[in-house]
Structure formats: structure tokens, C-alpha cells
């Protein structure tokens, strides 16, 4: 372990350690918040700590480490970063919509109703349009 790490300059090691600890610390705080927050809609905010700068910090640390230790520019970690930043909102949005759907269908919790102005508007439109239906 750590064959190439011994001949790294100290500033690079400190930078790698700093970003690594920031990233993993944020991921841990996110997980703690995910445990402690009381309702689902609050809990959905906590893991984004890990998926925004948690991932960002660890990716930066990995980029600095491999760039310094191999002597050439390595930034393919950016791919994971971009991929996760783009995909996490999609999963969270889908999950939140599923949760809203279930809560509304079962009528529990204090979730807001579907904006119900749209439904009558469509019905009125449908009635006034003789070609329809």
C-alpha cells in the first residue's frame, strides 16, 4: 500500500487529505441527518449533502492524488461527479413524486393537494368544446 505516496510533496498530501476529509465528513453528516430528521420530506434533503460536495470533495482529492502521483493530468473522476450530479435529482424527484402520490392516495400526512385549479379548467374546456367526446 502507498507505493507512490511516499514521494509525493507534502502540500499535495495535505490538499488530498483536506478534500478527502471534507467529502467524507459531509457524507457522514448527510447520513446522520437522514437518520435524525423526522419526516420523509425532510429526510430527502439530507443525502444531497453527500451527493453534492461530498462527492465533489472526494473527486477533487482523487484528481489531485492521481495527477501528482502519476505526473500527468488525470481528471476522469469528473465523469463520476457529473454523472451523479445529473442523476441524483432525477431519483429524488421520482421518489418524492411517488411519496406525494402515496400520501395523497392514502390521505395521511399534511401534504398539499394537487393544484386543483387545473382539473376544473380542463373539464370546462371539454364541455365548451362540442367536438370533444
Amino acid at each position: 500500500m502507498m507505493q507512490s505516496a511516499a514521494d509525493m510533496p507534502v502540500w499535495a498530501a495535505i490538499a488530498v487529505a483536506f478534500f478527502l476529509l471534507i467529502g467524507s465528513g459531509l457524507a457522514l453528516i448527510g447520513a446522520i441527518g437522514f437518520m435524525r430528521l423526522p419526516t420523509f420530506y425532510e429526510r430527502i434533503h439530507a443525502p444531497t449533502l453527500g451527493t453534492s460536495w461530498g462527492i465533489g470533495g472526494i473527486m477533487l482529492a482523487s484528481m489531485i492524488f492521481f495527477t501528482v502521483s502519476s505526473g500527468r493530468l488525470v481528471f476522469h473522476e469528473l465523469l463520476i461527479g457529473i454523472f451523479v450530479t445529473v442523476t441524483t435529482p432525477i431519483t429524488f424527484m421520482l421518489l418524492a413524486r411517488a411519496a406525494l402520490h402515496r400520501d395523497r392516495a392514502e390521505g395521511n400526512g399534511n401534504v398539499p393537494d394537487k393544484p386543483n385549479r387545473s382539473q376544473p379548467a380542463r373539464e370546462v374546456l371539454g364541455e365548451s368544446d362540442p367536438r370533444r367526446g
Binding site: M1, M2, A5, A6, M8, P9, V10, A12, A13, I14, V16, A17, L20, L21, G23, S24, G25, A27, L28, I58, F65
Partner: peptide
């Protein structure tokens, strides 16, 4: 020196992630 810093940081980070 830098090996010690890196080893400590990586170990702490792995513990936190675990």
C-alpha cells in the same frame, strides 16, 4: 511524511464513509 498524512486521512475517511 506525506505517506503518513495520506494514510491517516484515507483511514479516517473510510471509517466515516463506513
Amino acid at each position: 511524511m506525506s505517506a503518513i498524512i495520506l494514510f491517516t486521512a484515507v483511514s479516517i475517511a473510510q471509517l466515516m464513509l463506513a
